[in-house]
Simulated assay, not measured.
Amino acid sequence: MRDLMIEETAGLKVSGVHITRKGSVLLDVPQLSLNGPGPTLILGPNGAGKSLLLRCLHGLISPDCGRVTQGGVPLNAVHKSQQAMVFQQPVLLRRSVAGNLDFALKRVGLARAERKKKIADLLAEGGLSEKARQSAKYLSGGEAQRLAVLRALALSPKTLFLDEPTSSLDPGATQAIERMILSASSQGVRIVMVTHDIGQARRLASDVVMMQGGYVVEHGAAKQVLDSPASEASRRYLAGRLVT
Rank of each mutant, 00 (worst) to 15 (best):
L4V: 12
I6P: 07
E8R: 15
K13R: 15
V14P: 00
G16C: 07
V17E: 03
H18R: 14
I19W: 09
S24F: 14
V25P: 02
Q31S: 14
G36K: 12
G38K: 04
L41N: 02
P45E: 08
P45V: 09
G47V: 05
A48F: 06
S51V: 07
R55C: 08
H58M: 14
G59P: 07
L60Q: 09
I61P: 00
S62V: 14
P63E: 11
R67S: 15
T69Q: 11
Q70Y: 13
G71Y: 10
G72H: 06
H79Y: 11
Q83F: 14
F87G: 02
Q88S: 03
Q88P: 04
P90W: 11
P90Q: 09
L93Q: 03
R95I: 12
R95C: 11
S96Q: 05
A98I: 09
N100H: 05
F103R: 07
A104G: 01
R107Y: 11
A113T: 13
E114F: 14
R115L: 11
A124W: 08
K131F: 14
K131C: 12
S135R: 13
L139S: 04
G142P: 00
G142F: 08
E143A: 03
Q145T: 00
R146S: 03
A148W: 08
A148R: 05
V149A: 06
A154I: 06
L155H: 07
L160H: 02
L169Y: 01
D170A: 03
D170Q: 02
G172N: 14
A173F: 07
T174E: 05
A176V: 05
E178G: 01
R179C: 09
I181S: 05
S183F: 13
A184P: 01
A184N: 03
S185R: 13
Q187D: 10
V189M: 07
V189Y: 08
V189K: 02
V194L: 00
T195N: 05
G199V: 10
G199R: 12
Q200L: 07
A205E: 01
A205H: 02
V208L: 08
M211P: 05
G213F: 11
G214V: 10
G220R: 05
K223V: 12
V225P: 02
S231F: 10
E232R: 12
A233L: 10
R235V: 12
L238H: 05
A239L: 13
G240D: 04
G240Y: 05
